[in-house]
Design a protein around this nucleic acid. Structure first.
Lengths: 203, 203
DNA sequence: TGTACATCAGTGAACGCGCGTTCACTGATGTAC
DNA sequence: TGTACATCAGTGAACGCGCGTTCACTGATGTAC
C-alpha cells in the first residue's frame, strides 16, 4: 500500500522533517492549499499520519512551515533572477519580472503565501523586516530601488513607500490575472514595465 | 433544533433561493470561504441540506452564485461611493477609495472574489466586459479614468491599460495588506493617492 | 566480543466529526371537476 | 360549495468519505557493561 520507505536509523529521526515538508510542497504544487491535509502529506511521505506529530505540533504548524519555506524559495528566485544585472534599472526590472514569473510558474505555491492572515510571530513583535513573512523578498525589491535612486535613475524620495507600491502592484498583477484568466488583460511586458517605471519613478 | 421556519406555500418555492444566498453570504462574512458548506448554509437558512438541491445543482453552483452576488455588491458600492462627485479626478479618487474601503470592511467577502479560478461562463466565450466576473466593477473604474482623460486631467493614451494597472494596484493593496497586516505599510492615503496619480497619469 | 537494555522511529487501530449527495417519503395546498 | 387528487416544498435517514488527533504498541538499534 504505502510506498516502501525504510525507517530512519536511531539517531536520525530528524531526517523525516524535510521529507514531510517536501511532500507537503509537492501537494501544494499539484492541488493547492486545499490538498494540504495531514493525512495526504503522510501518505505522500510514505509514513503514517501520527508520525508527523513527532516533528510538528499540529497541522497548522506544518502549513506555516510550508509557507515560510515558500517565501524563502521566492526570495531565492528573485535574487537569482537579477544576479547578473549590473545596471540598476535593469536589475530592478529583472527582479520584478522574476517576481511575476515565479507567480506564473507556481500559481498554487504563490497563492498560499497570501491566502491567510498569519499567526503572530514567535518573538514579541520584533517588527523588523527580516523576520517578517515576505520580508526577505521585499528587502530584495527595496535594495533594487535604492540602487536606482543612488545611481540617479529614480526620482523617488520615499523609497520604502515606493517599494511597497511596486510590491503591491506586482502582487496585484500575479493574483488578479490568476484569478480572472479570461479577463482581457493587456500584454504582460508593456503593462508591467509601465507600472514599474511609474511607481518606482524611473527616469 | 432548527430555527422555526415555515414552509413556503405551493407556488412560492422560489422564495427559498434568495434565503439560501443570504445565509451563504452571512456565513462568508463571518467565517470566510471555508465556512461555506452546504450543510452550514442549510442550517442557517433553517432548512435541511437536501432542500438546497431544488435550487442549485451542487455546492459549487451555490459558491458561484455567492461570488457573482458579491461582485455586483462591490460594483454597487463603487458606484455609490462616487455618485456625488462631479470633478472627474475627484470621482476617480473616490472610486478607488471606495474599492479599498470595500475590501477593508468586508475582507472575507472580498477574498472569495479572487480565491478561485472561475468556471467557464455559460455562453461560449462572449469575452465582453459586461459579462465577465468583475466586469461591472472594472467598467466603473474605466469610465472614471475616461472622464479624466476627456477633461484633460489625465495624459493617459491607453485608457484600458491604465485602468487595468489601477485595478491591479488596488487589488494588490487590499489583498496584501489583508494577508500581511503586521507588515509596516505606509499610511493608506498617501500610498493610494500616489499610486493612482501615477498609474492613471493624472496631472 | 557478547549481551541486556533503554531509547527511538515509527505503526495500527480507533475516536468523533462534518461533509456532499441520494433516496424514499410526507403533508400541506392549490386546482379540476 | 365540496371533494378528490396531483403537485409542490420540503424532511429524515442513510451512504461512504477524509479529516485531525489520541493512544497503546512494536521492533530495530545504538550503547553501557
Amino acid at each position: 500500500m504505502t510506498p516502501a520507505r525504510e525507517r530512519n536509523r536511531k539517531g536520525a529521526g530528524d531526517r523525516l522533517r524535510p521529507e514531510i515538508l517536501s511532500a507537503a510542497a509537492s501537494l501544494v504544487a499539484e492541488g493547492g492549499a486545499d490538498a494540504l491535509s495531514l493525512r495526504a502529506i503522510a501518505r505522500r511521505a510514505g509514513v503514517t499520519a501520527p508520525a508527523i506529530y513527532a516533528h510538528f505540533k499540529d497541522i497548522d504548524a506544518v502549513r506555516n512551515a510550508v509557507v515560510a519555506e515558500t517565501f524563502s524559495e521566492l526570495a531565492d528566485w528573485l535574487a537569482r533572477g537579477a544576479q547578473d544585472r549590473t545596471d540598476p534599472v535593469d536589475r530592478l526590472r529583472a527582479t520584478c519580472r522574476a517576481y511575476v514569473d515565479y507567480g506564473f510558474r507556481n500559481p498554487r505555491q504563490y497563492a498560499i503565501l497570501f491566502s491567510t492572515p498569519f499567526e503572530l510571530p514567535d518573538l514579541e513583535s520584533p517588527k523588523s523586516l527580516a523576520t517578517m513573512q515576505g520580508g526577505n523578498a521585499f528587502a530584495i525589491l527595496l535594495d533594487a530601488i535604492k540602487a536606482c535612486v543612488d545611481a540617479g535613475r529614480s526620482r523617488s524620495t520615499r523609497i520604502e513607500d515606493d517599494a511597497a507600491a511596486v510590491w503591491l502592484a506586482l502582487h496585484g498583477y500575479v493574483s488578479l490575472t490568476a484569478a480572472l484568466p479570461d479577463f482581457p488583460w493587456p500584454p504582460t511586458d508593456t503593462l508591467l514595465d509601465n507600472m514599474i517605471d511609474r511607481l518606482a519613478q524611473l527616469s
